[in-house]
Each structure stands twice: as structure tokens, then as C-alpha cells.
Simulated assay, not measured.
Amino acid sequence: MNIGTIGTNWITEAFIEAGKLADDFYLYAVYSRDEKKAEQFRDKHGADTYYADLAAMLRDEKLDGVYIASPTRYHAEQAMMAMENGKHVICEKPLCSNAREAEQLMETAEKYNVVLMEAIKTLYVPSFHELQQWLPKVGTVRKAIFSYCQYSSRYDAYLNGEVLNAFKPSLSNGATMDIGVYCLHPMLYLFGEPRDTKASGYVLESGVDGEANVLLDYDGMDAVASYSKITASSTPSEIQGEKGTLYVQTIHRPEKITFVPIKGEKEEIEFSKDVPDMYYEAEFFVDVCKKSIMDNLNWDNSKRVMQQTDRIREQLGVEFDADQTFV
């Protein structure tokens, strides 16, 4: 399958290296607005060709699908262009800027009969599926706390007066979009749509949130998503039930799961990292494209996540340029 990439940052490189391990993944083309950078990226990763004109790349009949890793603000526009040209799309998380764009993208995918997939690695790594198998051990779930706090390498520049892309509302960024989705995706996947959502957090002067806590109210339980780009923590996530508690190290890609029962001996499992995390999403994408399978793409969860990020941002007072425009 001939793949093209949009974006030349580190995450694109990680996807390429992971994808090359998957059967039938072939890096055909790379795109950057900067022609020199596109050429250098092609040479570095061994693509057949490069483009500095996105429309031209998407018209290339040899291209089967694209991986999008541009700033979130451009995800919807670029994914729409790709699908309208008959290309399958795997788009970095978050899928787009808001729930309205998500609906439009899914309608477009159905119209052109192409695959649209959000590249949220958490839902595809084997350790997350193992977590699902361990969930019944806790009995009736009463509380879940998912935590992901990672100090951004770009925050030092922000504190020194330089606002880089990671902290620009014009690009649909901030803690909820960049980090919070890694808590929200598994939470909504495991427990479904909450009855109510309450969010609090710290909004930077640039207009994006630096950190937040989100309380999700469910029937019989509550859940908390705690995330940050301006602090750091190694606190494990927890799923607490009436028979015990599951402790999950690194909820975005579970590295270790420990079950501590109310009565009895604890159990634990650690996961080896034989292949890069992104291998599993790349392999799945290629497989569903080859088989033209349009289900099992976690669209329902992507919709739920975008609806929740809209609610969270509304409560925090975070607005994006994309909220005022239509694709």
C-alpha cells in the first residue's frame, strides 16, 4: 500500500519507522510546504518522491493513503482533500478541532467509501486489550482516575516569552487536545458516554489550557481525567472497584498493570516493547484499507472524545479559530 505523509516532525518519523515494520506498508511520498525540507525528508526516509504542493500529491494516482501529522487546525481540511481524491486517511490525534468537523469528516469518508482512522495508539496496543481483560477483576467499578501529566519541551520557551505552536489556539492546541485525549479515549472507550462533565483548569495567557481536571459523572461511578503540559507526574492511573483496584502505569500506552484485591494477593503484568507503539495502528490501518473494511474504526469513540473536548473547552473558556469556521 503506497502511503504519503503530511508533516515532517518527529511523530511523522516515528510513524514511518513503525509503519515500515508492517506488512504491505510502503512509503511512497512525503509532503512539506518547504520544498527543500520535503526533499531532505524523502532522502532521509527513502520515499519514492516528495511534494511541496499538497493538492498535487493527493491527485497522484499511485498514492493509496495518507498519514496526517500537521497541526490540529489543519487536520479536517487536509483529510477532506485527501478523501475527496479517493485516498484513505489515518490522522494523528486529535482527529480534528471539534465535534462538528468530526461529523463532516465521517460523512465524507462514507460518501467516498474510504477509510478514516484516528491515530490514537492507545486503542491499538496489545497492553490496552489486556487491560480490558483484567477489568472484571475489580468487580463493580466505582471510581476511575486517569492521569497523564507531561511537561512540554516547549514550555520553557513559552515562559521566556516565545509562544510556539503547542500553545497557540489558532492551531487548536493545548493540554486537552495534546495530552487530555490520551485520558479521554480509554476512559470513554471503557465506560462510555458520561451523564455529566465538569472541568476546571489553568488557561495560559496565549488562550490555551496548560492543565485541567475533568470529572465525568456515570451512573454508579465517577471518573477523573487529570492531565497537564506544564507539570510532570509519574502517578499511575487507577480503576477502583468493589473487589479491588487496577493500577495502570502510563495510561496512554500501558507498560504495567497491577491488580490489588480487597482480599488476596496482588497480581501484575509488565509488557515488553518488541516493536514501536505506533506499529499497531499502522498495521491496522493498512489491513482495513486492503480489505475495504469501514467498521471497527472506533468512530463512535472519536465522536465522543471530540464532544467531550468541546464541552471541556467551553467550561474552561478556550476558543479556537476553527470553532468559527466550517470546512
Rank of each mutant, 00 (worst) to 15 (best):
L246H: 01
Y279H: 07
N301M: 04
K266L: 11
R253S: 15
N298A: 13
C289K: 00
E270G: 10
K263E: 15
H252T: 03
I257V: 12
E283I: 06
T250G: 06
G264S: 07
I257H: 01
T258C: 15
I262W: 01
E281R: 00
W299L: 07
D300P: 02
E238G: 05
S237R: 00
L297Q: 04
T250M: 12
K266V: 04
P236D: 06
I269Y: 05
M294R: 06
R304M: 13
Y279C: 07
M278H: 05
V248F: 11
A282Y: 00
P276G: 05
R253T: 13
Y280L: 10
D277K: 01
N298C: 13
R304K: 14
P236A: 04
Y247K: 08
S292D: 13
K291V: 14
T245K: 14
S272I: 08
V260Q: 15
E267S: 03
E281G: 04
V275A: 04
P276C: 10
N296Q: 14
D277I: 00
T258W: 09
Y279I: 09
E268S: 11
E281K: 01
K291Q: 15
I257F: 02
V286F: 02
V305I: 11
V260K: 12
E283C: 10
K303L: 13
G241N: 05
E268Y: 09
D287P: 12
M294P: 03
D295I: 04
F271D: 06
N301A: 03
F285E: 01
K291M: 15
V288Q: 04
E238W: 00
V286N: 03
P254W: 00
M294L: 12
